[in-house]
Each structure stands twice: as structure tokens, then as C-alpha cells.
Design a protein around this nucleic acid. Structure first.
Lengths: 257, 257
DNA sequence: CGCTTTCTTGAAAAGCGTCAAACTTAGTGG
DNA sequence: CCACTAAGTTTGACGCTTTTCAAGAAAGCG
């Protein structure tokens, strides 16, 4: 039924080439748009060729022109420090929107690189803005997404300035779990798309520390890890740790011994 | 000359009660609005009674309804951690906009408290949105401000995850300096509106560490401090330190001795 | 299958936090 | 206006968490 409007405007007429049929449609941009609005949005969106691991969506400094919705796979955002090391500022999983922090500059302030084979929807920002003029719901949705990202950033700042290594890793895992769950995947069993190094970089910890915390969590029956495969065994305890737990009387995780 | 439109709509008919005559007009929201647009904006803005030190602009959890432009004084944003300690997420100086991270929630995610006697313009968000429908420039400006805040947050995350105590404090001072300069004040001499404790909280450092770094900077002729009064003596060196300098061959600041 | 990269583990070192105490400033009331 | 108290700041000594360095184990890749 929802197939008016498609015509010759469809760029990659694949089996899932429209927002209405997209399995992520309830999570992605058109969260609160009605069917007609989605059709309009649909017409400005391009599906890009899948990116292979290590390929770039855009580079820091590229002209800002599009935002991207991840359809499958995952993306990392990172900037270069003055010394040339990378600083990861975010990971993006399917249904999440990449590139919004470029809105007020001419260029992307960070680079976006695929962590694995990744497909995205490309949304030309100028056309999105045009469309937003007519669709108040779309406008509101864009604001909501940016505002959400602002709040997530504050959470991250809290993590970086107040939490210790265990709390950081626990927060990271809980957070991933929640996002996988929302996508429809198991919140208990998932594959980390990023390396230990990238986790450490993101969390402000040395690789070795991340590795040690993983082992400690495993020894304490919090999780079971096998390479990038993670099973969360005790979600409650993990959540407690993540929630900035240093309560005097809390059963402290035994230190490796 | 710019005085059509005012009529009975002016809430506090003080000497600086309009955006057009506001000394911050070139910095504040209406950055890129023309005179007529500013007049329209002007009519939805209320000037609130000055806040005394320690008073709240809003509390975490209050209904989100307004954003605020600081006219004079300063504001801190902070959230409560699960353990009940405060975590400062931002400081706002005159011409800066407070409250935007509430846009997509019903309630403010943080509290906003005056660090000193502070005056603000109150901007009802619903009316701002209405107005934004007609004024594309205003819409763009709101996006720009949010996007700027997103990028600032990334910078903060970088600071918290990669910089040591000296680099953090140097960054903090450089940043304040820049903002004071933009306001038209001296970038070299200014008064810190916040306590050492608050600086430490914000930078993820213990008070004692902040204090020690201040002393060290003073011993090394980088700055001169007297209570909250700060003079920057060597802006270049301070900037170098701030810019994530651990270059092998850089003249490392002598440690207090 | 061998090579490179990533991950893990141990031991030592460093940076920062914590505790404690002296000192300064700000605020209050006599 | 000064004394008094509370709050904020500075300084030193010590300890703990995390980093750094190093080396071996596992995994990914051609």
C-alpha cells in the first residue's frame, strides 16, 4: 500500500531502498513523521554503496554537505589531536545519525570511518533543510536528535571526569547493550565492532587497562568474553557498576588476585 | 532610529531592554538576523530580575520551557551524579545561551545556578519555535549554536581523556581568555567567576591539583594569580600547553622546586 | 602457513587523589 | 570598624589507580 511517489527518483532500487519499508524506520529520522512525510524524506535520501572496513564516510575537513543514517555495520568518529594521535569521539550503530556536529561549519569537524562493512543512507543536508521548512515534525526530530547527542556528550564528560576504569567499561558495555536491544538484537550477547585499542581510546584508558578490566569482569562472573564476542552474565551488577557506584558498602569487585 | 515596534510589549523598559540596543547583539542569538527580524525576536524575550549569587535559573527536572541568554554575570550548569555529588557540565559567560540541551526532553537535564549576580534574557522556547518557522536565519542560528555546543563538548571529551592536569588548566584559561576577548574584555586580565573547587570539578581534577597547577604556572611566569584575578603573562606558552603539547623536545614546565 | 597486528599479563613508575593542617578571604554580627 | 566564624585556598606527605614498558600469546590476514 505505501507505494505512491516512488517513480524514477529511487536511486538504488534494491529490496530495501525506501524508508517506509526500512526495518529501521521506527528508529531512524522519521520517528514521528507520518507516511506522506516519510515519502517526501524518502525522495531526498541516497543509499550509498556499502563501505568496507576502514573506508571513510567523510574526512575531517571535508565540505559538510550530508548527514548519514547507519543501516548496518558501524562507524567511528574521530578527530586528530595536535600530536597526530586519533581521539575517538563516538561510535555509531545502525539507526544512528552521523555527521550532525558539522551543521554550523563548512567542514566536518571529525572523520568518520567504517569499523566493518557498513551501509548508510546519505541525506543531503541542504535538501533536508528545505524539507524541514514544510515539515514541522521533521524539524522537531532534528532538534531532538541533536539535543539527545548533547545530553549523551554530557554523560560522557561525566564518565571521563568522575568514573574509574571499571565504571567506564561497565558503562560502555551497558550502553552498547541498550543500543543493541533497541535495534532488536539481544542485549546479552553481541559482537564488539571495535578493537580494545579503540575502546580504550574512547574511554580515556590505556589498552592494557581495558584488557585487565575485561579479565577482571570475567573472573567475577559479570561477563564472558571471547575476543570480540561478549556475553553479559550479570546485567544488574554491571548496571550498578556503570551507575557510578562507589557506595561505601557495595561489594567491591575483587582485584584479579 | 530603531524604535518602531516597541509599544506596550516591553516587559522591563530599562535602558537596555531591547535586542537592537543590546551591547551583545552582535554575539547573541540574532547574530545573522536583520533589523526587522530582531524586532520580532525582541518581542518574545523577557528580561528577568537579576539573579543573586547562588540562585537558580532552573533546576534539573524542571519543565523545559525557556532558553536563556546571559547578559551579565555567569551561570554554571551541573547535574547530580547517582551519589549526589554535583558534576559541572558548563560555564556560561555573557552572550552565551543556556538551556539548549533540554530541547528534546520535557525537563531540563541539568540545573543552572548563578555564580555571581547575573542578568539574563528569557526566551520561551515554544514561541522561539513559532518564530523560527518564519525566519530561516533564526532557524539556522539555533542549529549553529547547538552544533557549536556539540563541537565544544567533543573538545571537552578530548581534554578529559587525553590531557594531564597542566594541559587541562592551560586549556581552561585559554578558553576563558578567548571568550572574554570576544565579549570585548581584555584577554589578558580577568576575574574568574568560579571557585577553584568548581574549576576542579569541571576539569575532572581535585581542588588541590588545580591549586598546585596555578602555583606552578605562576612560578614559571605563565600567569600571575591573586585570588580570582588572573593575568596571563605568556599567552603563547599557555596556548602551546593547552594545545595538547607533550612534544618530546618541548621545554617542560619545571616542577615547582 | 607464516607474518603482522591485536590482545593479554606482569612489573615498575608516575601522576593525581586523599588526608591533614595552615593560611587567607569573605561574610556576619556585635 | 573590628572580631569572629565559616568557607575557600594553599601546601606537604603519602598511597593508590592507572600508565608505561616489555614480552609472550592469540588472532587475523594474505
Amino acid at each position: 500500500m505505501p507505494s505512491r511517489h516512488l517513480k524514477g527518483l529511487c536511486f538504488h532500487p534494491s529490496k530495501e531502498a525506501r524508508c517506509v519499508t526500512c526495518s529501521l524506520s521506527s528508529l531512524c529520522l522519521p520517528l514521528s513523521l507520518n507516511l506522506e512525510d516519510i515519502d517526501q524524506l524518502d525522495r531526498i535520501i541516497k543509499r550509498r554503496q556499502p563501505l568496507k572496513k576502514g573506508e571513510y564516510l567523510f574526512h575531517q575537513g571535508d565540505n559538510f554537505d550530508c548527514v548519514y543514517a547507519v543501516r548496518s555495520g558501524s562507524i567511528k568518529n574521530y578527530a586528530m589531536t595536535n600530536e597526530g594521535e586519533e581521539q575517538i569521539t563516538n561510535f555509531y550503530l545502525p539507526s544512528e545519525l552521523v555527521g550532525l556536529d558539522g551543521v554550523d561549519c563548512d567542514t566536518y569537524p571529525v572523520s568518520a570511518k567504517a569499523l566493518e562493512t557498513t551501509t548508510v543512507c546519505e541525506i543531503p543536508f541542504s535538501r533536508l533543510e528545505e524539507l524541514a521548512v514544510e515539515l514541522p515534525e521533521l524539524r522537531a526530530q532534528i532538534l531532538r536528535i541533536m539535543s539527545k547527542e548533547l545530553r549523551d556528550d554530557k554523560q560522557m564528560m561525566m564518565l571521563l571526569s568522575k568514573k574509574n576504569a571499571e565504571e567506564r567499561v561497565a558503562t560502555f558495555l551497558s550502553n552498547l547493550s541498550t543500543r543493541f536491544k533497541r535495534r532488536g538484537y539481544s542485549p546479552y550477547t553481541f559482537r564488539l565492532p571495535m578493537s580494545r585499542n579503540e575502546i580504550g581510546n574512547y574511554l580515556g584508558l590505556a589498552v592494557e587497562t581495558v584488557s585487565r578490566v575485561f579479565t577482571r569482569f570475567q573472573n567475577n562472573q559479570l561477563i564472558a568474553v571471547n575476543g570480540k564476542e561478549v556475553h553479559i552474565l550479570d546485567m544488574e551488577q554491571l548496571g550498578l557498576l556503570a551507575g557510578l557506584v562507589t557506595q561505601e558498602s557495595s561489594p567491591r569487585i575483587a582485584s584479579s588476585s
